[in-house]
Each structure stands twice: as C-alpha cells, then as structure tokens.
Design a protein around this nucleic acid. Sequence first.
DNA 1: GGGTACACGTGAGGC
DNA 2: TGCCTCACGTGTACC
Lengths: 234, 234
Amino acid sequence: METIIGDVNWESILQTDDYSWGGLEETVSGYYDSSSPDGTQSSSTTSKNIVSERNRRKKLNDRLFALRAVVPNITKMDKASIIKDAIDYIQLLHDQERMIQAEVMELESRKLEPVSFDFSQETGFRFISSERSKKIKIEHHPIEVLELSVSYVGEKTVLISLKCNKKRDTIVKLCEVFESLKLKIVTANISTFSEMLFNTLFIKANEEEIDVLKIQIETAISASNDYPHSPMSM
Amino acid sequence: METIIGDVNWESILQTDDYSWGGLEETVSGYYDSSSPDGTQSSSTTSKNIVSERNRRKKLNDRLFALRAVVPNITKMDKASIIKDAIDYIQLLHDQERMIQAEVMELESRKLEPVSFDFSQETGFRFISSERSKKIKIEHHPIEVLELSVSYVGEKTVLISLKCNKKRDTIVKLCEVFESLKLKIVTANISTFSEMLFNTLFIKANEEEIDVLKIQIETAISASNDYPHSPMSM
DNA sequence: GGGTACACGTGAGGC
DNA sequence: TGCCTCACGTGTACC
C-alpha cells in the first residue's frame, strides 16, 4: 500500500512538475526578492536557477523511474531501495550469465576430443568435430630459456630470475613448471614485454639448495618441453 | 577531467560527511534558532531532523556509488549518467543473456542430444554426462576475484587490473583465462604477495570495448571456475 | 557570466 | 507523537 502511494506520488510529481510551475515560480521568486532586498542578480537569474534545478531533479527522478522499470523485482519504491535492487539484480545477472557461459563451455568442450576420438574409431561415425576442435589442435611451443639465475639473497630467501621468449602458453607452462616444484614462494612476478618474458620469484630456501634448485628448474622445464601437456599439478 | 573532479568530490564528501558533522550541525541549528525565534520544537528536533536527512542523503549517494561500482562502462560520474549507464548495462546484459541462452539451446538440441543418445545406445558406453566434469575435478580451487577493473588509459590502451586470492593453480587458471581471450597484450604482470595475487595487463583495445572486455573476463573466469579444466587455448 | 552539478536545510505528508 | 521520505529553493564550486 505504501508502495502504491509512493508510486502515485512520484507519478503526480513527475507530471505536475513538468513545466506548469511557472506561476509558482513567480511566487517563489517574489518571495525570494522580498527576503533578499540586495537584488544583486534580481529574480531573473534566480528563477532560471530554480527552474534549472527543478529540471535536474526531474531528470534524475525520471532516470530512477526508468531504472525501476528495467529491474524486475522491485520490493520497495524507496529511492535507495530502487538503486539497491538494481545492484542486486545486476549481480544476479552476472551470476546467471557465468553459469550459462559455463554450460556453453561444457557443452562445447565435452563433444570435442573424447567423442570424436573414441567413437569415430569404433563406429566409423564421422563426428561433427566442429571447427573449434581443429583450432584446439596443439601447436606446441617449447619454453626457450634465455637466462636463468638462482641466487641466495640472505634471510633464507632465494631469488630465481628467468628470462625467456614469450610464445603461446609460455606463461602457463612456466606456471605449471614452478607449481610442480612445490616451492615455498614468498612473492612471484611474471612480466611480459615485447615478446620477452621475465619471471622473478622469491622463495624460502637454504643457501645450499640453490644448485639443486637450478637443476630442478631446468629439468622441469625440459620435461615440460618434451611432454607438452603433463597432467596439471593439482 | 570533470569526471575525476566529480569523483574525488564524492569520495571526499562520503568520507567527511560520515559523522564528523557534529560541529557544523551545531552551527546550523544555532543559525536556525536565531532565524526562528518561536522555538516551538527548539533545536533538538530540528538538529535531529537535519542529521537524519543528512544520513539519508549519504545513504542514497552511497548506493549510487555502489551502483557505479557494479556497472563497468561508466563514462560520466554524473548522478543521472550513472543511473542511465546502469539502465543501458542491464539491457545489454539482457541481450547478452538472450544470445547466450540461444546458443545453449542450439548446442543442446543440435549436438548433445543425438550424439549421447545414439552412442550410448549403440555401444553401451556410459557417456560422459554432466557428472563427468564434477568427478574429474580433483581439488578444484576456483578463482576468487576480489577486484577487477578495466579502464581506458588513452592511446588505444586498456589497463586491466585484477586482484584475487592466490590458491593452487590460480596463476595457471588466470593465464588460461587471459590467453583464451585472445587479447593484444602489450605488457602483462602477475605478482603474488601473502596469498594475494595481482594481475596487471596493458592491452591494445578501443575505449568502447572496455565494458564488453570486463564482461568477457568475468565470464571467462567464472567459466573456468565452473568448468575446471577446459581445453587449453591453442 | 551563463551553465551545470551538487549538498544543504527546511517544511510537508505518510506511517 | 516521532520517524522516514521526499521536493523544494538556495548557496557554492567548477567549467
């Protein structure tokens, strides 16, 4: 009930507020003139200001009204509540959209590799194998290490600095490599610039570990190169 | 430029407006008392009214501020413009949802049904069905986005800044997400510190792309969350 | 100076 | 009665 009243109130305001305020505007400006006898900018400027401000308010209320129109679940006609409902609704749409998108990806991905592979052999059925599955076919780009340094910087901290060419999936591969090593990473940084990739890690380790660490990194990288897609490190 | 000023203005207002108005409130009520000597309800009621109204305004501005936060493509910081952008964005989401929904329906009707039906009958093979993805996901840690901003910085360059919790494979997932988006990356940076992950990318894009960019990123991330290991992007 | 956008205090009206 | 929401006119600050 209160909502209806609020709504009607708005409607009426939005209607009567339009431009039929001329008479009252005069009244107001007259009142204002009487209370401010200086009259520096007289009533013309003031009335302009008043009607301008009035239009501004009207526009804002109009927008709010339109916002309320596109949001389905409006509970209270309160100004603040309208905005709040709009926020909630946008977030709800976000969630919905991501779920639907997930469904799309699931549907798209499930019929690509396993299906066309397993079943086409057994049944001879020429599976759709959409264009996307061909794109997915892996062109494997190995990691080309240009520089690798492992140095002890004190405080049980080791600095790993790696520079390599940036190609497709290089970052992913590097992440896999380093995550597979189960290091105690303090802070990690990966930067790319002009086809070059810089990887800097600070890890917790002892000074005497740095040699074996470097070997581990090198072997992990070459293993990644030899076996393009080893099972993801959990 | 004006937008920035407006924004800063709001920020400062929202900060200073909080409850540090006591002194000024006293001043105002005092002024009011001097101008209205009748004192029917004295200054206590009036000051209560003033501070109440002040809080109401603050709440409304706060909501508007929050609304601005969930809408990606804010052009002007104008109050009316914020609401207008929100309206446009909601309608954009509606359209997007429609199209995606159409795609889902198309995929479901055209591909999933006949295939899974035919083959499960013919070969008796227990086909994937949606449980597959859930069974396969071993210890899946979704990406928890804490902050995501996509902003145009001029010169056809867009800055993507993302902050999220660092968990296992978060970096890998993020790389997959961003590589799947096929962006024109100028320079990228991933930093981790104290279980937090900061991802900063400069990409080549036009200003009007930033809203759809943000949506793409969000949907790609949530798709990655919902469908843990989608086929690697090329 | 005109124009715009805002916060402010105030009175009205509904619970 | 008191609380809450609102529109209004006004002064101010920024182009």
